[in-house]
Design a protein around this nucleic acid. Structure first.
Lengths: 177, 177
DNA sequence: ACGTCAAATGAACCTCGGTTAATTACACCG
DNA sequence: CGGTGTAATTAACCGAGGTTCATTTGACGT
């Protein structure tokens, strides 16, 4: 019986990243998942017009990977870059899935991770669909203060789905109240 | 070795729904997943101001359930209603997860489902974050034509994240081009 | 203290979608 | 046929956020 922790120790490959280093770019084929040990990464979509939209911030303890890249072997749908000097551990997904085929505990760890991922995305979907930019920003400050204070205004805006200028306006509106 | 198909047959409870019937309401505690056999459901968020935002359409073959409700026993974050007369099969998630604890094949089926769910939500996140309402509408027509033609304008608009009036404007703009 | 560079703020103008309300189109039924 | 109810369209007005560009702030090195 293998635990996830054991799998990480046996099959994981540690990687050191300086601020600004990419783990993969949108369009790359990379079927690994990554566990963030220290530092912080951001996952973002790059549009043709050059604008970038931040999918998620990944502080210590986060696990990330492109679902379609891991599961279908297709190109990654987003890019992954360190916004602080970071240590991550690469986990080859295919190997993880194969190990899970013959390992009940590992399979159930995987179920737990995927379920947690689904839950996070469900929440994000709600925010993007049903909340205004202003509410999303307030929510970000409330839910992830430790992240918000380590991240630039521009990145906070990009995560919220607006421009830095619009975020600045929101902050001003909030002050005067 | 139990397959998912067998689990559905053994533990599934069939339910008949008339158009307009709810399976559960936002705020209910309901830790079941549902497999849609025939017809179509919609999952939607209801805001305090009364506006509703459609999370997803669920035609035949879809599986749906509130992640937080299934995993944490919390209240459902959205409502689930039939928009056509439908047949669904209720799958008690806790029972499914427990069965998976002792059943490798079932656990891996579960991994497959959760992964597919993650993939769908990842795509939706991209659409909501990086695409305009107009592009999301075009995308909906391209990706799910079979769904789009069975659904009211108001529901298509709600899924796209805009009002029926705005959707009407978009359609007009597209015609004149 | 000064210069430099990037981040953040601010202002002017524009576009898209929301809001409200009226109008048209269409299905169903007496 | 006309009547009724619902879905869809249209119009007029408004506000949030985008775009462009200028200004200010702040961190850092000299």
């Amino acid at each position: 019986m293998t635990s996830f922790q054991q799998f990480v120790e046996q099959a994981g490959r540690p990687i050191s990243l300086a601020k600004g280093d990419h783990l993969f770019l949108q369009g790359d084929v990379d079927s690994s998942a990554y566990l963030v040990s220290t530092g912080m990464l951001k996952a973002y979509y790059l549009r043709e017009d050059g604008r970038e939209h931040i999918k998620s911030f990944l502080p210590e303890g986060s696990v990330i990977g492109s679902m379609v890249a891991m599961l279908d072997g297709e190109a990654c749908t987003f890019s992954l870059v360190a916004i602080e000097d970071s240590e991550v551990i690469a986990l080859p997904y295919r190997q993880l899935a194969e190990a899970a085929q013959g390992d009940l505990a590992l399979a159930n760890s995987l179920v737990g991770f995927l379920a947690a991922y689904g839950r996070r995305k469900e929440r994000r979907e709600f925010e993007l669909l049903s909340m205004s930019a202003e509410d999303r920003y307030a929510n970000l400050l409330a839910e992830m203060p430790h992240v918000a204070e380590r991240v630039s205004q521009a990145d906070l805006a990009s995560y919220t789905g607006i421009t830095p200028q619009a975020l600045s306006r929101i902050k001003r509106r909030n002050k005067t109240r």
